[in-house]
Every structure is written in C-alpha cells, then in structure tokens.
C-alpha cells in the first residue's frame, strides 16, 4: 500500500513537470503549427541557467526566474530571426528547431560539463510532510500545486483575457484573426516566448527532482511528445490529462518493471492512436 501511494506521488510530480513542459509545446503548436523540437533543450538549458544562479547565491526563486527569462529571450530570438522566415513551411520549421536543439544540448555540455548536477531543494520545502503514516516530500507536493495553479492560470488566460481571445481566434482561423485586426506577428512572438519561458522555468523546478544532466533534453522531449499525442495536439486540457497519465504510467512502470518502463509508455500511445487518433481531447488530427 505504502509503495503504491509513494509511487503515485512520484507519478503526480512527474506529471506536473510534464504538464509545465508540454503546456508550452501545445500552446505553440496550437497557434503556430510549429512542432518545437527544441522544447526539451529549452527545459535543460533553463535548468542549467537556474542552477548557475543558485550556485552564485541568488537563491532558487531567482534561478527559476532567470531560467524562464533566458529561455524566453532565446525563444523570442529564434522565432523572430529564424522561424519567421520559414512561415508556412512547417516541415522546415521543425527541422530548424531540431538543429537548434542539438546546438543547445552541445553548448550545455561545453559550458556546464558532462557531469550530472543536483539542484538543491529551495528553503522551506525541504523535508517531508507526514499524514496517516505516509511520508510525502514537501517539494513534490509543491510542484504538483504549481502545475495545478499553472493550469488554472493558463485556462484563465485563454478564456478570460484579451490575449487569450486573440490566441483562440488565431487557433481557430488565422486568416480571420488577421482580418479582425489581430497583430499575429506580435502574437506569435508572445506565445513562443511564453511557451519557451514555461519550459525554462519548468527545467529549474524539475531540478530538485530530476537533477540536471546531459541527455535530460532527449529524455524529456519524447515524454512531452507522447503527452501531446495522447492528450490531443493544441489542447491545454489534453496536455494536463496526458501529462498525469504518462506521469503515473512511467513512475509505476519504472518501479515495477524497470527494464520495460519505456515499452509500457508505448501502450497508451498505441491505444489512443488506434482508437482515437486525434488524442483524448484533441479537436482534429494533425
């Protein structure tokens, strides 16, 4: 019993991290039809930047901010300088983001060496929280809360704000949005920066749980892709649902059948693609 509850919590925490990562991916894909394969690398870069900030003594929260901001800036540059030139050519855009992912991954090894680096748990969240004989690490609970708050915030952003209305209009019909006077050019940059910032900040938040190491990017990217395929491309609710499903399956899988955790990951994907190719909450196939 204890084991299942503990693994369940691990699953929740991983699901939360996956949501922070894939929400940005999904947002970008939904609006711009760009499958940003740099997203895993953004996550890792954010984590390294945050770690450096923490090492320099600015503290964890400054690290989260710095990670998010650095990656947002980078994302904005990529969008403005490169992706924009390839507008309307989704395949070329994907390949460019893959190339950038390789560059970032290698630059991280160059700058931060190849050794795995632990990230300290922020003060106030060390230790555990005891309830009915169960022991819950406080930080994991915190990350789950952050993901839920983020989900709520993104939902409010999409449904209740002007920016959200513009994004929804763009997702539904880009030409119509343009005709209505929405400056899609600015909108694209804003959304790309936002998605990148989520990835970067998510990387730092993930640090105390996953630590930072070369290959973190290519560990996370396929998980995010599976989440998005599962949940439905461009759907925030789908990303939320998919993240926690994958979080649970992966955590239990790794604990019960460590050899086969990856094969088990394959199963929900097969099921969804066979029975409902547009994803659990997706409105259309890609």
């Amino acid at each position: 019993m204890h084991f299942y509850v503990m693994q369940g919590l691990n699953g929740l925490a991983l699901g939360a991290l996956l949501f922070i990562l894939s929400a940005g991916f999904s947002l970008i894909f939904g609006l711009m039809r760009v499958a940003n394969l740099s997203h895993g690398a953004y996550f890792m870069l954010g984590a390294y930047v945050g770690l450096t900030c923490i090492d320099r003594g600015y503290g964890f929260w400054a690290g989260v901010l710095a990670g998010g901001a650095t990656v947002a800036l980078l994302g904005g540059l990529v969008e403005r300088l490169i992706l924009r030139r390839l507008a309307g050519r989704p395949l070329q855009q994907v390949l460019v983001t893959l190339g950038i992912a390789f560059i970032i991954a290698d630059a991280c090894i160059w700058l931060w060496t190849g050794d795995p680096r632990p990230v300290p748990v922020p003060s106030g969240f060390e230790g555990v929280f005891r309830f009915q004989g169960f022991v819950f690490p406080k930080y994991r609970l915190f990350v789950v809360a952050v993901a839920c708050a983020l989900g709520l915030a993104l939902w409010l952003l999409m449904e209740r704000t002007r920016l959200g209305a513009m994004i929804r209009a763009g997702v539904d019909d880009m030409d119509m949005a343009r005709a209505m006077g929405i400056r899609t050019s600015v909108l694209f940059t804003v959304v790309f920066c936002l998605g990148a910032a989520l990835a970067g900040a998510g990387g730092v938040l993930a640090g105390p749980i996953l630590s930072v190491y070369p290959g973190l990017d290519s560990d996370m990217l396929p998980l995010a892709l599976v989440v998005v395929i599962l949940g439905g491309v461009g759907s925030l609710g789908g990303a939320f649902l998919g993240s926690f499903i994958i979080g649970f399956i992966y955590s239990y899988g790794q604990a019960l059948l460590p050899d086969l955790a990856y094969v088990i990951l394959f199963l929900p994907m097969v099921l969804v693609l066979t029975l409902r190719p547009r994803g659990l909450m997706g409105r259309r196939t890609v």
Partner: peptide, 18 residues
C-alpha cells in the same frame, strides 16, 4: 500513418525514442 505531416513526424520520433 494514423496521422500525417507533423503528427507523423512526432509519432515516428516518439516511437524511435521508445
């Protein structure tokens, strides 16, 4: 092939990584 275009690319990538 349940998907096309970018979906196809993402699925092949995910399967390969698995």
């Amino acid at each position: 092939l349940r998907a096309s275009g970018l979906g196809f690319l993402m699925i092949t990538l995910a399967l390969g990584q698995i």
